[in-house]
Simulated assay, not measured.
Amino acid sequence: MGLQEFWFLIIAVLWIGYFTLEGFDFGVGMALPILGRGPDGERRKRVLLNTIGPVWDGNEVWLLTAGGATFAAFPEWYATLFSGFYLALFLILVALIIRALGFEYRGKRDSDAWRRGWDWCIAIGSYVPALLWGVAFTNIVRGVPIDQHHEYTGNLFTLLNPIALLGGLMTLTVFFLHGLNFISLKTTGQIRDDARAMATKVWVVAAVITVAFMLIINVQQGSIWSWLSFLIAVVACVGGFLAHLADREGWAFTGTFLAIAFVVASLFFALFPDVMPSSTNPDYSLTIYNASSSHLTLQIMTVVAVIFTPIVLLYQGFTYWMFRKRISVDNIPPAQDERDLATV
């Protein structure tokens, strides 16, 4: 394996980490207006937010690292992607910003209207990226119009094609399901029961959309490795659903975690060795070879990654371990006693 192949693999792993971890963050945000209803709604919402409160910002580091690694290892890919997908990525960035503001500011005032406004910011800031990430990755894998200068020649509506929108629906429903499984794993009482009941319905919808989308992708341009990853994802999904029916929340969450991981892996296997195929002319496609940095740059990056990656993984693993216990509305004090979102 050369350094170009190695860094393509690393970037794939970073995106897998982002989608599997930030995916349940998005799912919890999407579930907030639904599971947070009722006479005890405010305390239920604070339970939901506390399930991801210690980890949501750490999960976003995977996105920053994936973007930075792409910029350093494959600058041509980064330049074409971020210039061509500028508006779509801008919408994702705005959504992530208002979502982060919602986490930070909803508890700063003792006002129902104030909190409701920020709750919708969190929900919208979860729905929009969950949809648009699927749209973006579908277009990356299937190819977009790129000219001989490696410049994107389409527009936003070029990206919003039927197959890409199906990919967006896949990530939207799968992240929602992943979040419901995380809520079931992290809570007790009625909110856990409600999340489990909703997950049963969403599971079927998410599975049908995912299988339909992945069959289209793999039939069109799949390889033996992309097909194998897809089949593993199907097995993980079925196993997770059976665990869900058996009230084994930990294994159910593991099932959706692995399903997301292997779906993303399947997309990267289908993409390789391209990084942005050209639908205009295959000769204009960006590959890991014509889009990469110099050999020396990749060598330096490899040394840095080998040193610091284990440290980051250990730290994030420690965070999840420290905040592993379940919570319920009984753990949430009245809203007027809590003005800092650190305890939401």
Rank of each mutant, 00 (worst) to 15 (best):
residue 141 V to T: 15
residue 89 L to E: 01
residue 141 V to S: 14
residue 119 D to L: 03
residue 114 W to C: 03
residue 124 I to M: 12
residue 158 T to N: 09
residue 122 I to C: 02
residue 135 V to H: 07
residue 112 D to M: 14
residue 106 R to S: 10
residue 123 A to L: 02
residue 108 K to V: 09
residue 155 N to R: 06
residue 86 Y to P: 00
residue 89 L to W: 06
residue 148 Q to K: 15
residue 111 S to A: 06
residue 114 W to F: 04
residue 108 K to L: 11
residue 159 L to Y: 02
residue 140 I to N: 11
residue 105 Y to W: 15
residue 102 G to H: 06
residue 160 L to I: 08
residue 129 P to T: 09
residue 98 I to A: 08
residue 107 G to E: 01
residue 100 A to T: 04
residue 113 A to I: 12
residue 152 Y to M: 03
residue 126 S to F: 00
residue 103 F to M: 02
residue 156 L to V: 05
residue 92 I to H: 00
residue 158 T to H: 13
residue 120 W to G: 04
residue 151 E to F: 07
residue 146 I to M: 11
residue 112 D to H: 15
residue 139 N to M: 14
residue 118 W to S: 00
residue 92 I to L: 02
residue 105 Y to Q: 10
residue 98 I to M: 11
residue 152 Y to S: 02
residue 87 L to P: 11
residue 102 G to T: 04
residue 122 I to L: 03
residue 102 G to A: 05
residue 130 A to K: 05
residue 135 V to S: 12
residue 128 V to C: 12
residue 120 W to E: 13
residue 120 W to I: 04
residue 160 L to M: 11
residue 90 F to R: 12
residue 118 W to E: 02
residue 154 G to V: 09
residue 87 L to H: 08
residue 103 F to K: 04
residue 137 F to W: 15
residue 87 L to Q: 08
residue 152 Y to E: 04
residue 123 A to D: 03
residue 108 K to A: 07
residue 79 A to I: 14
residue 97 I to R: 00
residue 130 A to W: 02
residue 108 K to R: 13
residue 139 N to I: 14
residue 155 N to Y: 08
residue 89 L to R: 02
residue 141 V to F: 14
residue 82 F to D: 03
residue 119 D to Q: 08
residue 87 L to I: 06
residue 90 F to E: 03
residue 157 F to G: 12
residue 95 A to R: 07
residue 157 F to D: 13
residue 146 I to C: 11
residue 101 L to P: 04
residue 138 T to S: 15
